[in-house]
Amino acid sequence: MQENIRNSDRAPLPVGLYPHARKVGNLLFLSGVGPRKKDSKTIPGVELNDKGDIISYDIEAQCESVFENVRMILEDCGSSWDKLVDVQVFLTNMKEDFSSFNKVYAEYFKDIQPCRTTVEVNALPTPIAIELKCMAEI
């Protein structure tokens, strides 16, 4: 099974013991991907206080960053953006962020239109407002 594990050298490391992706047949399943930057705790558009709590954030900046991280993982693991078939979106504030998220999403996905599910979650493992879980063809 180890030969099916895929990782990207360009994307941020996972925050736990799991790969960026796993290949099964002609499908690539991505683990949850957030907007963090590689080799940094920096999260685009997020301002934290001294305790690490979110003071403010820009959901559009986080969307653009998470989409770029997904793109890098797809490319480095044998697929590509245009081969996405399913996207699961986790937002921490659906009421405030869905409209902005949906606008940015439409710009990035208008030509490929994968299936999508969007849900609100209470929190994510790091101080982020969005995470994606994706599936693509190889």
Rank of each mutant, 00 (worst) to 15 (best):
K133Q: 10
A21S: 10
I55H: 00
N7R: 13
P44F: 08
L132S: 10
C77P: 08
Q88Y: 08
V66N: 12
R10S: 15
C63T: 14
P114V: 13
S99F: 12
M72I: 03
V87N: 06
E96T: 12
L91M: 11
G78A: 04
L74W: 09
D82H: 12
Q2D: 13
K133F: 05
Q62C: 10
N7H: 12
I43M: 04
S8T: 07
V89D: 05
Y108S: 03
F67Y: 14
F109Q: 01
D39V: 00
Q62D: 09
K37H: 00
E131P: 09
I130A: 03
M94I: 14
A21F: 06
L48D: 03
I128M: 15
Q2G: 15
S99P: 02
E47W: 00
P12I: 03
V119G: 00
L124Y: 02
P14L: 02
N4Q: 13
N122S: 15
D97S: 08
R10V: 01
K95R: 14
V33W: 07
V121N: 10
V46A: 06
M1A: 15
T117N: 12
N93R: 14
R36M: 09
Y105F: 13
P127D: 05
A106P: 01
L132R: 09
K51N: 03
D82Q: 07
K23Y: 00
L27D: 00
T92F: 04
F109Y: 09
F101C: 04
K83R: 15
D50W: 02
R22P: 00
K38C: 04
